[in-house]
Structures are given as structure tokens and as C-alpha cells.
Amino acid sequence: MDKEEILERSRRENEKLDERERDALAASGRMAFLVGGIICVLIIALEWKFRGRMPTEVWAVYASMYGTNELIQYFRLRKISHLIFALLQLAMAVFFFGMFFMSLVR
């Protein structure tokens, strides 16, 4: 691959977003993920304290968020640890969603 091919590839990759916009998008995504996780944990803690029940639907949402994040990181970075955490979290999400669904049909 020569210099011109590398430059052309870089131009195509950067057509939609420049580096600053891409960095801002990544930072906002990380912050949104963090805030969403904190809210999920607060809902879980409050539900447990005041109603004495474990809100499986919130666990399903949180585990699916975290699992998806880890899965994307695995596809981008190819680190096996991300794949392991992704599979564990997504399995938990399916389990908690199943528990939530079973509580609905009872």
C-alpha cells in the first residue's frame, strides 16, 4: 500500500466525522453509559429497600447495556477478555429477562 492509498482510505474514513467530533461522540457515549448504569443501580437498590423485591427487568437492561458494550469492544480490539465478559453479561440479560417474562405470565 503506497502513501496515496493510505491517504485516500483516511479521507473516506473521516468523511462523516472529524477527529474532534468522533472524540466527543465517544466521550458522550461513555458518560451516557455510566449515568445509565448508575440510574439502574439506584433503581435496583431503592426497589430492594422499599419493596423487598429484586427488579429483574432493570438487571436485564443493565446487563444488556454492559454486554453490548463489551461485545463491540471485542469486535474492535479482538481481546478475548471482552468477549468473555460480553457473553457472561448477555447470558445474564437473557436470564433476567426470562425471569421478568415469567413473572408477567404468572
Score class of each variant (00 low, 15 high):
Met102Asn: 11
Leu90Glu: 07
Glu5Ile: 10
Gly67Met: 05
Arg78His: 14
Asn14Phe: 10
Ser10Thr: 06
Ile43Gln: 02
Ser81Val: 13
Arg53Ile: 09
Ala93Gly: 11
Ser28Phe: 05
Ala60His: 05
Arg51Leu: 08
Asn14Ala: 10
Cys40Tyr: 01
Gln89Leu: 08
Ile44Gln: 02
Asp18Lys: 00
Tyr62Thr: 06
Arg78Asn: 13
Leu17Val: 01
Phe95His: 12
Gln73Gly: 07
Ala32Thr: 06
Ile43Lys: 03
Trp48Tyr: 13
Leu46Ala: 09
Leu17Glu: 04
Leu46Tyr: 11
Leu7Asn: 04
Met92Tyr: 14
Ile43Cys: 08
Arg11Met: 03
Tyr62Gly: 10
Arg78Gly: 07
Met99Leu: 13
Phe97Tyr: 15
Arg76His: 12
Phe33Tyr: 04
Val35Gln: 00
Ala32Asn: 02
Ile80Gly: 07
Lys79Arg: 12
Glu15Ser: 00
Ser103Tyr: 05
Ala63Thr: 11
Glu57Arg: 05
Arg9Gln: 10
Ala24Ser: 06
Phe85Tyr: 03
Thr56Gly: 07
Arg12Val: 02
Leu87Cys: 13
Tyr62Leu: 15
Tyr66Gln: 06
Ile72Gln: 04
Ile39Leu: 15
Ile72Tyr: 14
Leu7Trp: 00
Leu25Gln: 15
Ser81Pro: 05
Asn69Pro: 05
Phe100Tyr: 15
Val41Thr: 09
Arg20Glu: 14
Leu104Glu: 06
Met102His: 12
Ala91Pro: 10
His82Trp: 12
Ala86Cys: 12
Asp23Tyr: 13
Glu13Cys: 00
Ile39His: 02
Ser81Ala: 15
Glu47His: 07
Phe97Ala: 02
Ala27Gly: 03
Phe96Met: 10
Glu15Arg: 08
Leu34Val: 07
Phe95Asp: 03
Leu88Arg: 04
Ala86Gln: 06
Leu34Gln: 03
Gly37Tyr: 01
Ile72Val: 14
Val41Leu: 12
Ala60Ile: 07
Thr56Gln: 06
Arg53Gly: 13
Ala27Asn: 11
Ser64Leu: 08
Leu7Met: 09
Ala32Met: 09
Gly67Lys: 12
Ile43Gly: 00
Phe101Met: 12
Tyr62Gln: 06
Leu17Tyr: 14
Glu47Trp: 08
Arg76Pro: 04
Gly37Ser: 09
Tyr74Leu: 10
Leu77Asp: 15
Phe97Gly: 02
Ile38Ala: 14
Phe95Thr: 04
Met31Thr: 06
Ser103Ala: 14
Arg12Asp: 08
Ala91Gly: 15
Arg76Tyr: 14
Pro55Val: 06
Ala26Leu: 11
Met65Ala: 10
Leu87Thr: 07
Glu70Met: 15
Lys49Cys: 06
Lys79Gly: 12
Glu47Ala: 07
Ser64Trp: 13
Glu57Gln: 08
Gly37Lys: 02
Leu46Cys: 07
Gly98Asn: 10
Ser10Asn: 08
Phe100Ser: 03
Leu87Phe: 12
Met54Trp: 01
Ser10Phe: 09
Arg30Lys: 10
Trp59Ala: 09
Arg51His: 12
Gly67Cys: 05
Phe50Glu: 07
Leu46His: 08
Ala91Tyr: 11
Ile43Ser: 01
Gln89Ser: 15
Arg53Cys: 05
